[in-house]
Each structure stands twice: as C-alpha cells, then as structure tokens.
Design a protein around this nucleic acid. Structure first.
Ligand SMILES: [Zn+2]
Ligand SMILES: [Zn+2]
Ligand SMILES: [Zn+2]
Ligand SMILES: [Zn+2]
Lengths: 141, 141
DNA sequence: CTCTAACTGAAAAAATTTTTCAGTAAAATC
DNA sequence: GATTTTACTGAAAAATTTTTTCAGTTAGAG
C-alpha cells in the first residue's frame, strides 16, 4: 500500500504540502527542523507555507510516515540528576519521572549496531514511557 | 562532595539562581520546563529572572546536576520513518541519521524495570549518538 | 576587607509556534 | 465531467519561547 493510500485510509487527504514535506525528507541526509523543511520545500513548490509544514508534520507523524527525533538542542523538560549514567522512566498520565541506572544493558545491542552500521556509538538516550503504579489503577484521564 | 563543592571545583560559582533552580527541581514530581521552573522559583526568591533560569539550567546540566528530558511535545527534528518500530542512530559530527529496527532487544531490561518500579512500560525512546564511518576518519570538527 | 571577573535581572531582539480567517482544492457524489 | 462538501491552504497576526545586550551586583580569591 502506497503512502497516499495509507493517508486516505486514515481519512486524510493527499495534498501538495504533505507531498513536498515527504519529498524533502526523502532527500535529506539528516533530521531537519520545520524551518529547514520549509526552506527546502519552497524550492520544490514556491507557495508552500510554513504553517502547512507544521501541520503536515503533525499529520505525517500520526500516520507513521515521519519520525520525530530528539536532539541535544532546544528541548525543554528537566529533572534532577542522580550522579552517573541513568535512564529515565516517565508516566504518560501523571508525568512522574523516575531515573534508573545501568549502561551495560545495552552493550550487546550497541555492539551489534556498530558492527552493522560502521558507526562508533559514544552515547545514547533511553527513555521508557508508561504508567506508574498509581496511574494504572485510575481510569483513563 | 556536596553539589556546591562540585560546582566550585568545576570553576562555577554557587549563586542564588542556581540554588533556587536546584531546590525547585528537588521538590518537583515531574520534569519541568524553564518557564515552570521560573514560576516556582519566584515563590522561593521573588527577584529570580527567567534568563537566569535558562543560564542556571545550562550550567547545572553541564555539571551533571540536572538532566534534560525529551518529551513528546515541542521538539523539532524530523526524519523519514520506516514502517514499524525503529531506533535511531545519529552522527554527532555530520548529523546523519540512520534507523535500525528491533524492539525485543530491550525486553529483558524493560521487564526488570517494571518489576522494580511498578510501572507498566508501554513505549520507549532509544537513540544512539556517535560517529558514522566517514566521520571517524576526519579530524574533530 | 578589596578586587575582579563571573555573574545577575530587565529590556529588547530574535526565533519559533499557534491561532485566525477568507479562500482553495481534494475526493466523494451525482 | 460537473457539483458539492469540507478538509485543507497560505498569509497575517498573536502568542510563546529563547537569545542577546548591558549596566550593575556579588561570590569568592587573595
Ligand atoms: Zn527531545
Ligand atoms: Zn503516573
Ligand atoms: Zn544508558
Ligand atoms: Zn558523520
């Protein structure tokens, strides 16, 4: 099933901005911000508006056609840090955040990825999202 | 070693904004945005400026006293998505992003975390950061 | 203390994101 | 293919977030 069909099946239309955003991302070699996508998109279709890029990304992400990447810069949300390397567990309902230690858990996975991709992995970001114990009891909010 | 000493050793001063930001985060039950930290911080010290919150977070994060959390909302950077669950590998030098599949790699880890914390883990975010093969060759940029 | 450079808050500027709205066009129906 | 419906569009305005600038303050070394 083509992505056009996937969009239609999910009740969305196939429009110029969505087509252009996808095409820009297909040609990109790294994650792009909405602004960057807009700039490149205008080279494909002059009249593309920035607002439509935002809206297209929203839809395409929901449709699973586009993936949001979290990068170092410009991402708010802070918790207190315990010393050393930790991962974070966040409750999607109440927002509670818990740290848990452990870096070796991933060494097998990382070794495998390094072998397959030629990358040298230096760091990682692991966050688990779920429901904390109290929130499992209460009904959906 | 206290956090004040840690700051000093790293060449930073212990100042009111840094103290207040830390205290706000100590009392918080979930990740807070700079704005939220500022609002709560003013209840501790009326004259606290928003700019200083931004600056304090920067320093405290570098000092390992505070951890930045990536949340769903408001985080730019997009790549094209392959269908299904993937993790992302990003080169810190050239920005190149590569997806790799696999969700079962973490199942042992997740089971362990669920047992220890009482959370029910529903989703996760795993990103590896490193150097791609070409960038390993070139000197530091 | 005194001194000095690392800091501070406020204001202004810049950048990003969301809202609003009158018009456009995708795709279902005829 | 024309008609109709309404999801969608771009531009402008508004709101929000982040960065820069700057004159003054203060932590902490000496
Ligand atoms: Zn993020
Ligand atoms: Zn919860
Ligand atoms: Zn880790
Ligand atoms: Zn690279």
């Amino acid at each position: 099933m083509s992505w056009e069909e996937r969009l239609n099946q999910a009740g969305w239309r196939v429009t110029m901005p969505r087509r252009v955003v996808l095409r820009v991302l297909q040609q990109a070699r790294r994650p792009l911000s909405p602004q960057e996508i807009h700039a490149r998109g205008r080279r494909i279709h002059r009249s593309l508006g920035l607002v439509s890029v935002y809206r297209a990304l929203e839809v395409l992400e929901q449709a699973g056609l586009v993936r949001r990447v979290h990068r170092e810069a410009r991402c708010d949300g802070y918790i207190l840090a315990s010393p050393g390397h930790h991962h974070v567990l966040i409750c999607r309902r109440c927002g509670r955040a818990v740290e848990f230690p452990g870096a070796e858990d991933l060494s097998g996975l990382i070794a495998q990825v390094e072998r397959r991709t030629g990358f040298r992995v230096e760091d990682h970001l692991l966050q688990l999202i779920g429901l904390c114990a109290p929130c499992q009891g209460s009904g959906p909010a």
